[in-house]
Design a protein around this nucleic acid. Structure first.
Lengths: 169, 169
DNA sequence: TTGGAATGTCAACAAGACTGACGTATTTTC
DNA sequence: GAAAATACGTCAGTCTTGTTGACATTCCAA
């Protein structure tokens, strides 16, 4: 079932990229790369008494304006208590607005204020700059492979969330 | 300076993979993939009152047996106090051994005990299994691209640590 | 030999995740 | 219309993992 590429390779040197050593290299590459990936926004947030949690909330509210708390919970994969702490400070500080739903008044729809959008821009500029550099150094074929592997690495429900965000706009 | 691949592409559709939208997709892919990447070991650690920090320490002690606390600090990128707490519990529980250095008695050299190696095996089997699946689904060319982009995404000193680990055994 | 640098430990604290319990408003179901 | 379910907020408590500050030990060089 769904063997994919591996059938196209002569069985002698096939699957060389699947050795334990190769896999361990990939694991360490993920570890070190993720550190770089979060380093720039972390630096910006450091002085603002915000953390990575705030960044994530801001990012996804920016991408899906008007999303509900429950929606965000599912995407971020945290508890509502945890998210609530973050949202409360963001709302107090005037970066996020919460509107009662028109159709279902139990829901709160979240959007970024102008100040929130400004911070989002600042954070995402920093993160995109690093991403752009990496993409440029690696070239388009590598980028395609990069995305393919990352998608294959996601949990199924995470992949659904990712694909929905990717295609849904 | 160092334009790389982009010169080989006709300028019309060139750099399509460098649009903000493409970059944002890459950012989200990293976010969701990293969750999948850590999910399996996290599940195993859950019942053991250990966390991701313990996993990382065990992983790198396994890869570089006899390493010192300072060495590990540089690789993990945390403060020595933070690492120390983790190491203390691992030593108490008999998973890690700490020997005073023969040449420099200030140093502590760290190795895994048999029990430690067993847990390392269990954790790394789980993580490798997911990695192997992802690699197999994606195919060798994608894997090559994956690694290229990840390396380009690292901070320079992280890349040095990664390359040293990659080539140094 | 003495003072500084390096290595590592202990103590206290903060961020951010978690669970559990409870309250309120609203919608849905019977 | 009453009861159950849903969406959200909050209080309290715990755990992991990061931080700083203070301190002991050891090494090295002036």
């Amino acid at each position: 079932m769904a063997e994919g590429h591996s059938q196209n390779i002569s069985s002698g040197q096939a699957l060389l990229y699947l050795t334990d050593e190769q896999l361990r290299q990939g694991i360490e590459a993920m570890f070190f790369a993720y550190r770089g990936f979060t380093a720039d926004p972390d630096r910006i947030l450091e002085g603002l008494s915000y953390g990575r949690a705030h960044h994530r909330a801001i990012h996804f509210i920016h991408c899906a304006p008007g999303t509900t708390v429950n929606n965000l919970l599912a995407i971020l994969g945290v508890t509502k208590q945890s998210l609530n702490r973050v949202l409360r400070t963001l709302i107090e500080d005037g970066l996020v607005k919460s509107h009662v739903g028109r159709i279902d008044k139990r829901e709160r729809h979240l959007t970024l204020t102008e100040a929130g959008e400004a911070l989002e821009q600042q954070l995402s500029d920093a993160q995109r700059a690093r991403m752009r550099d990496a993409y440029r150094k690696a070239g388009p074929e590598a980028v395609a492979g990069f995305k393919t592997v990352l998608e294959a690495m996601m949990d199924d429900d995470m992949k659904r969330a990712y694909v929905a965000l990717r295609d849904g706009r």
